[in-house]
Computed example of a mutant assay.
Amino acid sequence: IDWLAAGLNPGVATIFIQSKVPEHAELHLLLSMITPLGWLERVPSYKDQQAQLQDRDLGTYGFLGYPLLQSADILLYRPQYVPVGEDQVAHVEITREVARRFNHVYGRDAQFETKVEKAIKSLGSRNAALYGALRKEFQEKGDAGALVKARSLVESNARLSVADRDRLLGFLEGSGIAVLPEPEVLLTSTPKVPGLDGRKMSKSYGNTIGLREDGDSVARKLKTMQTDPARVRRTDPGDPEKCPVWDLHQVYSSAETREWVQNGCRSAGIGCLDCKKPLIDKVVEETSAIAKRAQEFEENPDLVRGIIAQGCERARDVARDTLAVVRQAMAMDYR
């Protein structure tokens, strides 16, 4: 309900429950057979949370292997890009490493040439002929310029699926395909949203603001939010770049308000509570609007269940296709 109320359109975004798509667990298991423990132990969040949550028993594979489950969540849908926050970039990087290792171990998929021929036809007759000529120039004469042009031709073609694009790129150099394509990170203009204590926002740390949180609670939390530690007194100048409140201003505030914050903070012309006031107004305005929209969905639970059911089926269709390709590559197709 929170996601729908926040504006996700189920006609564009597939909203589903992970546990209703068992292919997630299967791909996670298969990937765990080829992933070195050392890769998981060096994930930054693994070490950070061990240090931050010392009162919890984290000595389990469930905790250690969680980044690999995230990798399975991503790779199961073979995306080209993954929209994440700055703190999740490391998870996408390990996902790329896992995909690269899988592709190295299991190589080409079955019927590679047949699928390449079909993908070439998808380019259109003129581009297909150009692709063939450029590939020949590169493979027979070693023309690096032809390779660059051919790659550009493939990557700029919007009609190709991610899998077909990867097949054609691999075919250029005479190699196989990436069974699991390596996804790229997609960051927003403000890739970091801090928690109330300056650390990353996490329910585990208890430093979050709920999407539908009561306005008085939001105001109370933001008023006590950590600021630049250099501003001990009201008359001390500060540096917005060292203040987590500034990160929220970059998300919510207009250019005019951000300029006011920069000038006022650095000159001690405004205090921290002054700085937070317009931010509080904007955040409360947003959470109140989300809460209002959420009420409509709460009053119509059958609509929500229907959206989730459709999303689960849509997700399973894609997940089944990926698992079929993975099993075939691993010679586990027992038909």
Rank of each mutant, 00 (worst) to 15 (best):
D281P: 06
S254N: 10
D2Q: 04
K242I: 09
D143M: 01
I177P: 07
S175P: 00
G195I: 07
E313I: 08
I120C: 11
A6V: 06
L40F: 05
G210S: 13
I290M: 06
S122K: 15
S32F: 02
V245D: 12
L187W: 02
I15S: 01
A255Q: 08
A158G: 05
G269T: 07
K118I: 02
F16M: 05
V283Y: 09
S156Q: 06
E241G: 08
P83V: 08
G65A: 14
G198K: 11
K223W: 07
V326C: 11
A129D: 03
R42S: 06
D57M: 09
M201P: 15
D87H: 06
A133K: 01
Y252F: 05
W260G: 09
G38C: 05
L29S: 13
E117H: 12
Y61P: 08
L69Q: 00
R126T: 14
L75G: 10
E113M: 11
E241P: 09
W39D: 14
A329Q: 08
R258H: 11
V245C: 12
E23S: 13
A144Q: 12
A230T: 08
H28P: 05
V12T: 08
R135I: 01
P79Y: 13
S152Y: 11
Q262D: 11
K149C: 02
Y61V: 12
E86L: 01
S267H: 03
V318T: 10
K223P: 02
V105D: 12
N207P: 13
V21Y: 07
L172M: 01
Q295G: 02
K282P: 14
N263D: 11
V283W: 10
E23M: 10
G176I: 07
L323I: 02
N9Y: 09
K282G: 10
P278C: 02
E213F: 10
T235H: 02
S125P: 10
L8T: 03
E256N: 00
A72Q: 01
L273S: 08
L180N: 00
S45C: 15
G176R: 12
T208H: 14
P240R: 00
G176N: 14
R165V: 03
R212Y: 07
L130C: 01
